[in-house]
Amino acid sequence: MDNCGAPVFEYAPLPMSPMTVAELLLLAVVTLAAPVALPSEFWPLGGVCFLPLLAVAAWAVLQSPSRTRIRASGIEVSLPLWRRLLRQRAWFPWSDVRNVYPASYELAGSALSPFASSAGTLVHTGLGLEMADGGHLVVKFTPGSIRRFRAESPGYTYAMEAVRTVFRHLGRPLVTDARAYTDAEVLAMHEEARRPLIGMGTIVFAFFLPPTIVALGTLAAGALGLAADLTFLLAVVALAAIPPLASMQFTLGKSRRRNRILGELAKHEETMRTGGA
């Protein structure tokens, strides 16, 4: 990248996501507490007890991100270590970028919260890049602390201002190819984007039904004289997991659709802002 000029803006992502840190802390506590909580024959099992912690630690290292650099001639997007080892593309000249706009994205693990599922999964704003060849990516600027469901982090704010500065010098708008929407369509899109992803009644049903299923399964086994062996318990747990898993999958699908709508609105507003429509 030496011939691409000095960075106009450089952003260093968090070395680990909040979810990865939480997983490491949880596994560390469980692993260290195992000698106290478990009989000696169940620990350390020849070192097998340490494998989950080591696996998550290795995953955290492989997810270590590079920096995002915005330059006068293009953008170098952040990539995790495993993608850099595979030599995946990180540099995109502005001549290959068709549109730059505010793009929403979900935070990892947010769909696991029933409250997030009802109000809308936790999302933040990044740089949406649409390429001339039809490719699309979102440059993320996730902050270390989450205070609101939807927010523009300082990293995103500075990055967008840097992009606007570069594009002003290039004499081109951020959005060069966007669909035109009527006022009625824009209002309808805003209305859809504001709707809750899932009603609270559905959330209560999906997340509080599993204990009931497990309890009923255990009672049914006793009443019918069935042996509550490992196979039976696994079957009951698998059945109980269906409602929350279906709810999370449905929520993520609706959230991603909402993010696409917000992206279209952002491109439309940017076009109107620059007088392109």
Rank of each mutant, 00 (worst) to 15 (best):
A184S: 15
D2Q: 12
P196D: 04
A221F: 03
R147I: 00
L54H: 03
G225H: 02
R260V: 10
G171E: 08
L174T: 05
H169N: 09
A188Q: 14
S73Q: 13
H136N: 14
E23W: 07
E269N: 13
L239I: 10
M1K: 11
Q249W: 08
A55M: 10
A227W: 07
V77Q: 02
A72C: 02
M200R: 11
M272E: 08
G263F: 07
T251V: 15
A162I: 09
L170S: 00
T125K: 03
S73T: 14
V214E: 10
T251I: 09
I242G: 08
L252S: 00
H268D: 14
W82F: 14
R67E: 07
V61R: 08
L265N: 06
Y181M: 15
L122C: 12
A235M: 14
E76C: 01
R71V: 05
A6D: 11
L25T: 06
H136G: 11
K267M: 15
G46Y: 05
M16A: 15
P7W: 09
G201A: 03
V77Y: 00
A12G: 13
H169F: 06
G276R: 14
E269V: 07
Y11A: 11
W59N: 08
S113W: 11
R98V: 05
L245K: 13
K140F: 03
L127P: 02
A6S: 10
A240D: 11
A241I: 06
L62D: 04
L170T: 02
W43H: 15
A220V: 03
V48A: 15
F115I: 13
Y156M: 01
L233Q: 15
T20W: 05
P114I: 03
P154R: 02
A228F: 01
A241L: 12
D183I: 14
E269H: 14
E161S: 06
G155V: 01
E130Q: 01
P44Y: 00
E10S: 15
S17F: 10
A57H: 03
V237G: 12
A227M: 09
F149A: 09
E191G: 07
A180K: 12
A159F: 03
R67L: 06
R87G: 09
P44G: 10
L174R: 06
L127H: 00
Y101M: 00
R150K: 08
I146C: 01
